[in-house]
Amino acid sequence: MTTVSMTVNGKKVSADVAPNTLLVQFIRDNLRLTGTHVGCDTSQCGACTVHVNGDSVKSCTMLAAQAEGADVTTIEGLAKNGELHPMQAAFKENHGLQCGFCTPGMIMSAVDLVKRNPNPSEETIRTELEGNICRCTGYHNIVKSVKAAAENMGG
């Protein structure tokens, strides 16, 4: 076992875990933050995307131990003081989700996308979201949501 400590959604957390524990397992199983989902076993689907030190990361591609000391944000930490993040609000407003399973990862990726591309074109959004699979929406309304959020985020 190894002790890992990090800040998750602004709260300091620490736990003894097996050295091969993935960050996503730490988040889901140790912290019981189940908004971060697992949709595949080859790091393709992006349902487990979180932010590590501000950058989007597929949390199944990283050991918990690699996040030692890091500042991690999951979907549960995105809304502030009960107020939805503009990306969350845009997904709701534009019907950017159906079953909702890919949604947390999609939103976390999209927040990072807009951070790096404040005024993204449709093409940029589609290319950037290549690592997040949605089976329900056909992406049409996801693209629309990200565009709308980018405008509201001051892009």
């Binding site: 189940t34 908004g35 989902h37 999951t74 979907i75 969350q88 997904f91 709701k92 989700l97």
Partner: peptide, 19 residues
Amino acid sequence: VRRKEDQRFITGNGHYLDD
């Protein structure tokens, strides 16, 4: 109408089976 169920899904508060 904007969907009632979305609030829990966009905030990570859905209850899927593995949760």
